[in-house]
Design a protein around this nucleic acid. Structure first.
Length: 372
DNA sequence: AAGACGGGGAA
DNA sequence: TTCCCAGTCTT
């Protein structure tokens, strides 16, 4: 192997590199946050934390991580759990595919790696839900293996350090950053160094108003010199949102008080999670829906559940954003004359108290709380 | 190369 | 409101 990919790019000299390494490491030793996954470094814990941290901020993850590790302290306990329980522990974190793949990967480790989390890069990378970043992060952080990482924080830090003004997510930018991450990586203290890169990105080299005065790399960072952090990294074009109007119905059996819930299927959002029957439908004045609107709701409800409702009472409106949609969800309650004998696979009647043990979409949880 | 996936926190 | 987040996987 004579062609290291970093040789295809022009980076500063090795003196500059040494400064970056020592300054970043020294800064980290004084400024590292005390985060739960930094105690008791172990590949399993590191893996769980890395999956949770994908596209999710540190502050959000902390409580989820602690609860999750308490319930699933090792990879085999996770593998042996029901997927529904794993999803329940994930509820509210979003990107639920992560939880399904985490669970699946735990079973792969149990069945193909003797229940021991693998420590070679190829095996880790082969696990579902693990890409180049996550595999490198797990093994570098928990085992000090010499593997580079590139993620949101380092994208920003590298772009500024290299005065890189292209879109950081383009494939050419990513190639350059991976090469740089490899080039800048020291021989020793890999775990601290990789965490330090992210920590500087998170605490100092922030998207808005970075703290260049407190930065360990000030005076060797061209972006600090030129005071051009607003231009680098290149701002992305803003996403436009689409307004959606939906209706959810709490169907209730008045005798037993049971309510009907529906499991989201593959191809839908929230696959594997449960929700109240729900569909797209706009209602102008939800408190006084027109006859026409009511009949549309009934018809769609019947289509989804084979149940017919006697009278629809408006409960509340819940607003929430999902990816690029902004949804206004009008919630109704209705009693059913009598329960159907045969239900579709993905429907079930449950007592409201039992909803506590069932993974629901966040809006489903809000609605469940409002009726209990 | 682009789009989907989710929700919370901060400005 | 909009932006951003310890990315991965599928078209």
């Amino acid at each position: 192997m004579t062609n290291k990919s970093s040789e295809n790019f022009a980076f500063p000299d090795t003196l500059w590199r040494r400064k970056v390494r020592t300054r970043i490491l020294n800064w980290y030793r004084r400024n590292a946050r005390d985060l739960p996954w930094r105690n008791n470094l172990h590949p399993y814990r590191s893996w769980v934390s890395e999956i949770m941290l994908q596209q999710t901020q540190v502050a959000t993850v902390i409580d989820y991580f602690n609860r999750f590790i308490k319930r699933f302290p090792d990879v085999v306990s996770l593998a042996n759990a029901e997927q529904q329980e794993v999803l329940r522990y994930w509820e509210g974190l979003g990107y639920y595919r992560r939880a399904r793949q985490l669970h699946l990967a735990a079973q792969v480790v149990r069945d193909q790696h003797d229940g021991e989390f693998p420590t070679d890069f190829e095996s880790v990378l082969a696990l579902p839900g693990v890409g180049r970043y996550t595999a490198g992060a797990i093994l570098s952080i928990s085992r000090n293996q010499r593997l580079p990482i590139v993620e949101a924080n380092t994208n920003r830090l590298f772009a500024r350090l290299l005065l890189h003004d292209e879109d950081v997510m383009s494939s050419s930018s990513q190639k350059r950053f991976w090469a740089f991450a490899e080039w800048i990586l020291p021989r020793k203290h890999i775990s601290d160094f990789n965490q330090a890169l992210m920590e500087v990105g998170a605490l100092v080299c922030t998207p808005q108003k970075p703290d260049c005065k407190g930065c360990p790399l000030k005076s060797i960072c061209p972006t600090e010199l030129q005071q051009c952090w607003e231009r680098i990294p290149k701002p992305k074009k803003k996403t436009k949102y689409e307004n959606l109007f939906e209706v959810a119905v709490v169907l209730r059996d008045p005798k037993s008080k049971f309510v009907l819930i529906r499991q989201c299927e593959a191809g839908e959002r929230w696959e594997g999670l449960w929700d109240f029957p729900r569909f797209e439908c706009s209602v102008k004045k939800p408190k006084q829906p027109t006859r026409h609107e009511l009949s549309r709701i009934s018809s769609k409800l019947n289509q989804l559940t084979d149940c017919s409702a006697t009278q629809l009472n408006w409960l509340t409106q819940i607003k929430h954003g999902v990816t690029k949609s902004r949804i206004a969800l009008n919630c109704f309650q209705a009693d059913v004359p009598r329960r159907k004998r045969k239900l579709k696979e993905n429907l079930k009647w449950v007592h409201p108290d039992d909803l506590n043990n069932i993974p629901l979409s966040v809006t489903g949880r809000k609605l469940a709380k409002s009726i209990s």
